[in-house]
Simulated scan of single mutants.
Amino acid sequence: MIVTAMKLFTALLLLISFFSYAEEDKLLKITTGEYPPWSSADFKHGGFVHHVISEAFKHEGFKVEYTYYPWARNYKQGQKGDFHATAFWYHSEEREKLFYYSNPLYAEDVVFFHLKTTKFKEWDTLENLGQYRIGITRGYTYTPEIWEAQKKGNLNIVVSNSDKINFKMLLRKRTDLFIMATVAGYSLLQKELSMTHMQTLTYNPKPLFSSEGHLLFPKVRPDAQDLLKVFNKGLKALKNNGFYEKYYDLLLEGYYELP
């Protein structure tokens, strides 16, 4: 009887251990950064992008936990493989060597913001912009053409540590142009600047490039491709059942920003 009881007890422990491991294995850890209104620890659901990521994985039976870092560190953390994925990034050849890209989370135009008093109406190539001081944000993704033009001395690039600093640089006339995505740019302006300051700024309607944000899965992890397939399946389901469009409407209405 004692032997039988011990066997039953051992089997029960193994069963509990199995389910505990399975439940733990369903928790995904993702490294990310602040980029309102798409992502922010201070927003509902962490912002639109994190809401979409969480719901896509939830549809497939997974939970998500986010850890926020400055963008440059976010990228380094993502490479190590300690996290299941890193959110969220534009495409680049460098990253493609290290990560598997999810299907797009969203699309947005990246433009040149400037003061309304700055004479900047038309441009064809980056070579036309040599006379301007152009602000960019450390750790962000920009086109290879921008870096090549800077390397050749055709562009005057000014690197700052945040988008907020870059907008202040514009207002103080320490830069002439600032490269920023439209939705994220105006969201930040509404949050951080006065209406008077906002009314002094505009952007050139011609996009520098159109961006798509992706969830990246580090190739050093053996489960990366499996999780990529899981996420893409969940994302497709969100779009098919109309929830993705609903979340995007909430984004435009300002729903994610806490009062």
Results as ranks from 00 to 15, higher is better:
140 Y>P: 03
140 Y>E: 10
140 Y>C: 04
140 Y>H: 11
140 Y>R: 08
141 T>F: 06
141 T>P: 01
142 Y>Q: 00
142 Y>T: 00
143 T>R: 06
143 T>W: 01
143 T>L: 12
144 P>E: 12
144 P>L: 05
145 E>I: 02
145 E>M: 10
146 I>G: 03
146 I>Q: 09
146 I>D: 02
147 W>T: 06
147 W>N: 09
147 W>I: 06
147 W>K: 09
147 W>Q: 10
147 W>L: 11
147 W>C: 01
148 E>D: 14
148 E>A: 13
149 A>I: 10
150 Q>V: 09
150 Q>F: 12
150 Q>N: 13
151 K>W: 12
151 K>C: 05
151 K>E: 14
151 K>Q: 13
152 K>N: 14
153 G>T: 12
153 G>I: 11
154 N>G: 08
154 N>F: 11
154 N>C: 04
154 N>P: 01
154 N>K: 14
155 L>S: 08
155 L>H: 08
155 L>K: 04
155 L>G: 04
156 N>K: 14
156 N>Q: 13
156 N>F: 06
156 N>L: 05
157 I>T: 07
157 I>V: 09
157 I>W: 02
157 I>A: 04
158 V>H: 11
158 V>C: 05
158 V>T: 10
159 V>S: 06
159 V>H: 06
159 V>P: 07
160 S>F: 10
161 N>C: 04
161 N>T: 11
161 N>L: 07
162 S>M: 06
162 S>R: 05
162 S>L: 06
162 S>Y: 07
162 S>T: 13
162 S>N: 07
163 D>Y: 06
163 D>H: 12
163 D>N: 11
163 D>T: 08
164 K>A: 06
164 K>G: 10
164 K>F: 07
164 K>L: 07
165 I>Q: 13
165 I>W: 08
166 N>R: 07
166 N>F: 05
166 N>L: 06
166 N>I: 03
167 F>S: 00
167 F>A: 00
167 F>P: 00
167 F>M: 03
167 F>C: 02
168 K>M: 10
169 M>S: 09
169 M>Q: 13
169 M>E: 14
169 M>F: 15
170 L>N: 07
170 L>D: 03
170 L>G: 05
171 L>P: 08
172 R>K: 14
173 K>M: 10
173 K>G: 08
173 K>S: 14
173 K>F: 08
173 K>Q: 15
174 R>Y: 11
174 R>L: 08
174 R>S: 10
174 R>M: 10
175 T>I: 15
175 T>C: 13
175 T>S: 14
175 T>D: 09
176 D>W: 01
176 D>P: 02
177 L>I: 03
177 L>R: 03
178 F>T: 00
179 I>M: 15
179 I>S: 03
179 I>T: 02
179 I>H: 01
180 M>D: 15
180 M>R: 15
180 M>I: 11
180 M>L: 12
181 A>Y: 02
181 A>C: 12
181 A>M: 12
181 A>G: 15
181 A>T: 12
182 T>Y: 02
183 V>D: 13
183 V>E: 13
183 V>H: 10
184 A>F: 01
184 A>Q: 13
184 A>Y: 01
184 A>N: 03
184 A>K: 01
184 A>P: 00
185 G>W: 01
185 G>E: 09
185 G>D: 08
186 Y>E: 13
186 Y>P: 02
186 Y>T: 09
186 Y>V: 11
187 S>W: 01
187 S>R: 02
187 S>G: 15
187 S>E: 04
187 S>T: 10
